[in-house]
């Protein structure tokens, strides 16, 4: 136990070490002409840095690829949409023409029926034997 205490007493204390370090690192003024000498020495020894521009390989940017692709897709979509619209218009036009044609054919048959009815009346009036009292006047 005494041995341990003795060792602890002899061991350097942290306070002492810190004090010594502070003393060693205290600010000291540079000697006269140190700065000038240092700068002249650096200028004499320091090699000039050479900056070389190394051309890097052109990286394929996604923009260059997607731009034409997007334009082509837009063009294709526009063409398809146009074709679809034209087809719709054609179908509508054919439907309209069919409806008009059917209506016209119905009108035609109706007109022919009316015509034949009236011709029937004329025919009956012409061919019927005259009624007594000259009720019918046919010419």
């Amino acid at each position: 136990m005494n041995d341990l205490e003795e060792r602890l007493r002899r061991a350097p204390r942290p306070e002492d070490a810190e004090e010594r370090l502070r003393r060693a690192l205290r600010p000291v003024d540079a000697p006269e002409g140190f700065t000038e000498r240092l700068m002249s020495a650096l200028q004499a020894r320091e090699p000039r840095a050479v900056v070389a521009v190394v051309p890097t390989a052109a990286r394929p940017t996604p923009r260059r690829f997607w731009m034409p692709a997007a334009m082509a897709a837009s063009l294709l979509a526009a063409v398809l949409l146009g074709q679809y619209n034209a087809q719709l218009r054609d179908e509508a036009r054919v439907a309209r023409e069919n409806a008009a044609g059917l209506a016209a054919s119905r009108e035609l048959m109706q007109a022919l029926r009316v015509t034949s009815q009236k011709l029937d009346i004329a025919y009956q009036a012409v061919t019927k034997p005259p009624v007594t009292g000259a009720e019918e006047n046919r010419s």
Binding site: L119, I121, A122, Y123, E135, E136, N137, R138, S139
Partner: peptide, 15 residues
């Protein structure tokens, strides 16, 4: 062509 007149039915048809 035809001029039919019926007094009884009051009908006139001219073709």
């Amino acid at each position: 062509m035809v001029e039919a007149h019926s007094k009884k039915e009051n009908t006139d048809v001219d073709v």
